[in-house]
Amino acid sequence: MTNTDQIPAPSRLFEPARLGGLELPSRLVMAPLTRNRAGADGVPGELMAAYYAQRASAGLIIAEAATPNPVGQTYPHIPGIHSAAQIAGWRRVVDAVHGAGGRPMFLQLQHGGRVGHPDTSGHTPLAPSVVPFPETLHTPSGLRNAVPPRAMTAEDVRSTIADFATAARNAVEAGFAGVEVHSANGHLLHQFLARNTNRRTDEWGGGVKGRIRFTTEVVRAVAEAIGPERVGLRISPGSGVNAVEEGDTADLYPALLAALTDIEPVYVHVVHADPDQPLFAAIRRTWPGILIANPVLSREEVVTDGGKQRGERLLDEGADLIALGRGFLANPDFVERLRAGAPLNEIRPELMMHVHGAEGYTDYPTLARV
């Protein structure tokens, strides 16, 4: 065997890629990661700008969940995208990333639905049905039991769809290349998809056709507002995060993806993607466009290679881009470390969420500082 034969093939993760009209320097996407570092008014500040600028080498950054209206806020210090000050704050973030050599950024739009509390948002949470969140919630006054949400009226549904469209326009005004509509992990859109949280008998509930309608109409309104080439959708098929139970996952997602084909969003982003599960293969067969896969990772995989091998397998199974979260969280130079096969920083999980300040946020060292 020659020395050339022993050299491993270059990883496809580092190949350039396209996302609609965007040129990406690699297939590595920084997944959206809620960090609770915005101001109490939901305005991103200089600390958030520094955090994202540190991670500018990602092929694409999908910035953390931002709420499209006040009632959609989940926890304290979650950023919003519904006020002039929030738009200006996000513009500072985008400018900082571009100034550090970063490429495009998308902003995730998330409405918490029943995952919210009046102590945090000042509003009674809205949800498809009056099904209380069965867990405690972080609020400015500490952990509190969730309150029963108010079932959305037809007018609430229409106004919330309009708020998503306005939030998308605000994101583009702030400099984002596009937005990701969050229909995953037990938040409002996922609550409409799930049978245990959507008990409606009108056109927004009942069977699969009714339960996928809200997500479909939000994506449609956002695409009409800023163009489908600027719009992605995040889904988490079969996930029970935030106590949702879909009940008919195998029927739900093919129907949802089929309903999106005439809207043509630029990508679908699958959370907890597993190349060994038939559901991922079924989604790849059903969805004709760009597919971003956010893999299921064990703690050992996070520590050893940050998800590199699992991401490469998902590319082999048909994914176009790979979204990784915890590796980017603890390693400002995550792309460079993966490319070099360098050791990764250990995550300090106690500082991931519901804390404030630079510790566990912008103080993770780069290779040059180790």
Results as ranks from 00 to 15, higher is better:
81 I>L: 15
109 L>Q: 12
97 V>E: 00
116 G>L: 06
102 G>Q: 02
90 W>T: 02
122 G>K: 10
125 P>Q: 09
98 H>L: 06
82 H>T: 06
127 A>T: 10
121 S>M: 07
112 G>C: 11
96 A>H: 02
115 V>P: 08
103 R>A: 13
125 P>W: 02
127 A>Q: 08
98 H>V: 04
114 R>Y: 14
87 I>G: 01
124 T>K: 08
84 A>F: 15
113 G>E: 04
93 V>G: 04
97 V>M: 03
85 A>K: 06
99 G>F: 06
83 S>N: 08
116 G>T: 08
97 V>Y: 03
105 M>G: 04
107 L>W: 04
96 A>M: 07
105 M>H: 05
77 H>P: 01
90 W>G: 05
104 P>R: 09
126 L>M: 15
122 G>P: 11
91 R>S: 13
106 F>D: 02
105 M>I: 05
94 V>S: 03
88 A>H: 05
105 M>A: 08
118 P>M: 03
114 R>D: 10
125 P>E: 01
125 P>C: 10
112 G>Q: 06
105 M>R: 01
94 V>N: 02
98 H>F: 06
125 P>G: 11
122 G>L: 14
102 G>H: 02
120 T>H: 12
117 H>L: 08
87 I>T: 15
88 A>S: 11
78 I>Q: 15
94 V>M: 05
95 D>F: 00
118 P>N: 10
103 R>M: 07
91 R>H: 10
95 D>V: 01
122 G>C: 13
107 L>F: 10
127 A>M: 08
112 G>V: 09
82 H>C: 14
123 H>K: 08
